[in-house]
Nucleic acid binder design. Structure first.
Lengths: 229, 229
DNA sequence: CGGCCACTTGAAAACCTTCAACCTATGTGG
DNA sequence: CCACATAGGTTGAAGGTTTTCAAGTGGCCG
């Protein structure tokens, strides 16, 4: 159904094999509280700047995990199978966020990752987890990222009413999607209402009604999607 | 309300300042998939084997985070304030699990931790996050733990009906509470139904009704708590 | 003993899901 | 180019689940 072809990016150095000199390195590695020296020269083995077309699968659930990815632009959607065979959305990954840390440890992906819209990613080549092959500086930064992302991996508290769960989700997504420091600007939701519902544990219709409410109360401005899918 | 006094443990070496020679070190550090050499000699600076009485607060939300903790026995309950001032349970930590990794990074606890029943903990003295002061071996193991815990930090998918959410919770909690490799034995739930409800986003009464159902269907055996609180 | 706390149960109300229909934009084939 | 199919989105009504409110039980402790 989906073409898994990965097209080469138009970035300056598509073959770059580490983060040194990458114009985005600062964004990837230096945006966190408690960051150390602020240096963006991170000599991590990496394949830089691949572009995934909308709908392309980065990896599938159950696949052997050979790398950790960092999102550079766009949005990755993570899905996991339920016991009954249905699928649910378990997370979204936005620029500057890591994907597949847990898979790296376990050796196998526990969820699949698909591009929601156009997505730019870097593939980090890490030595096998626990092998002791990773450099101190690498470990230091990975741990930082990892610990920080622990907070954002959970959907809004399920005890909230639907409208607040949707509102919280939008707020969180927007905060993560916006470039750090930039003023508030309209953001794009690259997933369907059904995807949001799946993530929040709500029916698609409930998400729609919640968004309608938020719009009516002037808490949100919703524009039609220009290019669905 | 609660006495924050920490009593000294009866362990062999209550003043031990690292994990070398600790009989529990293997349990703490070598129980994970992909573990490297299997060595339990982990020279981490640590204060070993403090015991917390039931209800004692280990740290409060908003406090400056000065250490990371590892649970050795019992159960820690993590709570976080909502915007409206109410509190919800955001997690439970069981033996072998880390508490406060994210706090360590951010420098401040984003949730409070309280002993649910008698709890044994070790306090790991880590250099400030990102300072580069941590050893490679320490980082390696912390990252392993951290990445593994990312999976267990989320409550069961909110889209499930209440009874399945409760069942999933009990199952997960039991699996984590049981000593690795031991046969299934009755486990103790050291929290109230209200706490479970708060964690799952369900009303206390709904949890009670779900447990009643599971008991009626012979999927669960529930015994009255011997010592409430 | 009396009070408190955890737990339990019942009934009504609120909320969310489900089902069904419809709308609009996009893309495809004749 | 138009007809049609498809996918995402939206709305209404019915039905089911969960919450809320109210009341009551039993154990523990001062």
């Amino acid at each position: 159904m989906y073409d898994a072809r990965v097209t080469r990016s138009r970035s300056l150095d598509p073959l770059g094999n580490d983060c040194v000199g990458c114009p985005g390195a600062r964004r990837c590695w230096s945006d966190d509280a408690g960051a150390t020296d602020g240096s963006a020269d991170v000599p991590f083995p990496a394949r830089r700047g691949s572009q995934l077309e909308d709908g392309v699968t980065l990896f599938l659930e159950g696949e052997r995990a050979s790398a950790v990815y960092m999102v550079m632009s766009g949005c990755l959607m993570l899905r996991q199978s339920n016991i009954d065979g249905t699928e649910r959305v378990v997370g979204f990954r936005l620029p500057g966020e890591l994907v597949g840390m847990d898979s790296w440890i376990r050796g196998e992906h526990s969820y699949s990752a698909r591009a929601a819209g156009m997505v730019g990613i870097c593939r980090l080549h890490l030595p096998p987890a626990g092998s002791g092959g990773a450099s101190r500086s690498l470990l230091d930064r990975l741990l930082l990222k990892c610990a920080l992302q622990m907070e954002r991996n959970a959907p809004p508290w399920p005890g909230l009413p639907a409208i607040e769960r949707v509102a919280t989700f939008i707020e969180d997504f927007a905060a993560r999607a916006r470039v750090k420091g930039s003023a508030s600007s309209p953001i794009k939701l690259p997933m369907t209402r059904a995807d949001i519902g799946s993530y929040l544990g709500l029916a698609e219709e409930t998400v729609v009604r919640a968004l309608t409410q938020l719009r009516k109360r002037r808490l949100l401005r919703v524009r039609a999607r220009r290019n669905p899918r």
